[in-house]
Design a protein around this nucleic acid. Structure first.
Length: 576
RNA sequence: GCGCCUGUAGCUCAAUUGGAUAGAGCGCUUGGCUACGGACCAGGAGGUUCUGGGUUCAACUCCUAGCAGGCGCACCA
């Protein structure tokens, strides 16, 4: 149960009652009230701003309103005490039987505790990674990949339906250069011709050689004498190899997509032509010229007459080109077709995860979705900022020219999948992230993954000591315990879990989960250490028994850590 | 020139969708292992939340004008 939602309803009931008894006149803005967590130094469990909200419509001071309301709040059977604080907050402390009810409920829910069932179930499509299929994933792709995956976990944790999709840009010039690179590596193998290293269009990485070898191995009767004749076939083969490489990388990160949608297929199926027609009909397309941006060297600018989409109608700074000079479609044009395809599949919410370097692309694609759906379909774009790699306090540089960038594989081999996932989520995606190799490998408080896992392992060890398993179901007859303030501190933290889930989902900010788990672990470690001086706070007593109230507490903490780590996609080992 | 993101303790970052006395880790400093797991804990010092204006009972949060850093701004994808 979400005690904040629950008590908000209660407060509204109380306000209605006060109105019917003519103690207050107006309940305007009542939907704006909050039930929140009070700051630590107050000895209470929840607080509400209701008096401040009702102050104006009733033409009374918040303190006056609060004093009227606390009399009614005090009559609630679960309330021990209600007080009014400075600007007009009402602080409420529960009787200890309240926490018993709370615990009984969350223990029965197991790892389902925290699911937000207030919303109607929706169909989500989340597109993420979508890296060019020209080689393995590198660190730059990693953060967005994890962000997308964890958002999917979060959304499906809340019982919505999620489809995870990867858009394969297997069309256009980049792919042509890529195919050419593979081709030249093949020639290098079968004809011993030297691979040109000075052509900046060609891909330098050694993995191209592996792709060439694989293609040769599986296509023994293919004739490689004429590039133009086999380029289409070769592109298909090379992209296939590349995507397999990427799938492997993703797999090692614990990520799997439901669909891979091919750009070439969209073009071949004439979906681009169709969507252009649709936009033309609705008057969003014209033939015109784009002006050079201010402040840049305009001498090299070539003005061309081309097919443009009126993205400025939707707030973009310029209209966007759909067709190249040779009349082939631009990347944007086929992406518009792809998004039309998404709209036709009737999702409620579309989400795209993009890297910081593509942030400038958002307005035009959102504009396209607005135009195509008549603003009925919403596309939400989430940007993940750069990751700065640091080793021994020095930045770690990669050179794209040499193709010596650090791959996802390198990263996982160095620090492990779970650490990569947890660290990438430990900060808001809006800020650049320092990924410090040295620290991530440390097994200390510097490393939040271990800190949280250690908490779970400690709980496991208690169960192990009494010959039980942490995942065993527990059966308690009567929830009739008296928790101390130190224990209630942990319970209060646990009570915030549904709120954490709700906000993380609403704002698409999964880092809040990592932060929360760290804080919960901190509260737990703190309590654990109290047991050193105060035996009553140890979980296992002198007779090697764990009392029921402590079992329940342990179980509640471990359930939340378990489900949080499930969402993040990191393991919770019972021993470390 | 324009757009997006960021600016909070010496450093790296949080801050409950506008709440009360802005919190963690690292670093500095004092203390705690015969211990249910010390991969841990308790205490101390450290702040004009980049600046100015505005909205609000209430602003790190929203609006506005600046400053600084990052990313981007053609038919690349």
């Amino acid at each position: 149960m979400n005690i904040f939602d629950l008590y908000k309803k209660k407060i509204i009931e109380i306000v209605e009652k006060a109105k019917s008894e003519k103690n207050i006149i107006s309940t305007d803005n009542i939907e704006k009230i909050n039930v929140d967590i009070p700051p630590n130094h107050f000895d209470c469990d929840i607080s509400t701003n209701v008096a401040m909200i009702l102050s104006k419509p009733n033409n009374k001071s918040p303190i006056e309103i609060a004093n009227i309301l606390i009399k009614l709040i005090m009559t609630d059977e679960v309330v021990e005490n209600a007080t009014v604080a400075k600007p007009g907050f009402i602080n409420i402390k529960f009787k200890s039987n309240f926490w018993n009810k709370f615990l009984k409920d969350i223990i029965s829910k197991n790892t389902n505790y925290g699911i937000n069932l207030n919303e109607n179930k929706k169909k989500y499509l989340i597109e993420f990674v979508s890296a060019n299929p020209t080689g393995p994933l590198h660190v730059g792709h990693c953060r967005g990949a994890i962000l997308g995956d964890v958002l999917s976990n979060l959304i499906s944790f809340n019982k919505h339906q999620v489809t995870k999709e990867y858009y394969v840009n297997d069309h256009g010039n980049q792919i042509l250069h890529f195919t050419k690179s593979v081709y030249l590596r093949i020639l290098e193998i079968i004809k011993n011709t030297k691979y040109p290293t000075d052509d900046p269009n060609l891909y330098p990485g050694d993995y191209i050689i592996d792709i060439a070898k694989n293609i040769l191995k599986n296509n023994k009767d293919l004739d490689f004498n004429n590039f133009d004749k086999i380029s289409k076939k070769l592109t298909k083969l090379a992209v296939f190899e590349s995507i397999n490489l990427i799938k492997l990388n993703l797999n090692n990160l614990g990520i799997s997509h439901d669909n891979f949608v091919s750009e070439t297929d969209l073009v071949n199926n004439k979906e681009v032509d169709k969507v252009i027609e649709k936009l033309k009909k609705n008057n969003f397309i014209y033939s015109g010229k784009i002006k050079a941006p201010e402040g840049e060297d305009k001498s090299k600018w070539v003005e061309r007459n081309q097919l443009l989409f009126k993205s400025t109608d939707f707030g973009d700074d310029k209209d966007r080109a759909l067709q190249k000079e040779d009349k082939s479609w631009t990347y944007f044009a086929s992406d518009v077709a792809y998004h039309n395809n998404k709209i036709n599949r009737k999702f409620d919410i579309l989400i795209n995860i993009l890297g910081a370097d593509h942030a400038g692309y958002i307005k035009r694609i959102v504009s396209a979705v607005d135009a195509l759906s008549g603003k009925k379909n919403k596309l939400v774009c989430k940007v993940s900022q750069l990751v700065k790699l640091i080793k021994d306090n020095k930045p770690f540089k990669m050179s794209k020219r040499k193709g010596d960038y650090i791959t996802v594989e390198d990263l996982i081999n160095e620090v492990g999948k779970d650490a990569v996932r947890f660290i990438m989520l430990s900060r808001s995606s809006d800020v650049e992230l320092d990924f410090d190799f040295t620290k991530v490998k440390e097994k200390s408080k510097d490393n939040p993954l271990y800190y949280v896992q250690y908490c779970y392992a400690r709980i496991s060890s208690v169960f192990r000591n009494i010959n039980k398993n942490i995942s065993d179901e527990i059966k308690i007859q009567n929830y009739n315990f008296n928790y101390t303030n130190d224990e209630i501190k942990i319970l209060k933290k646990i009570s915030q879990w549904p709120k954490c889930i709700e906000i993380s989902t609403y704002k698409l900010e999964p880092h809040r989960i990592a932060v929360y788990l760290y804080e919960l672990s901190s509260d737990f470690h703190s309590y654990w250490n109290m047991g050193k001086e105060d035996k009553s706070k140890r979980f296992i007593n002198d007779n090697n028994i764990v009392s029921d109230d402590k079992i329940v507490l342990l179980k509640a903490v471990s359930n939340v850590i378990k489900s949080g780590m499930n969402i993040i996609g990191a393991k919770t080992p019972e021993k470390m």
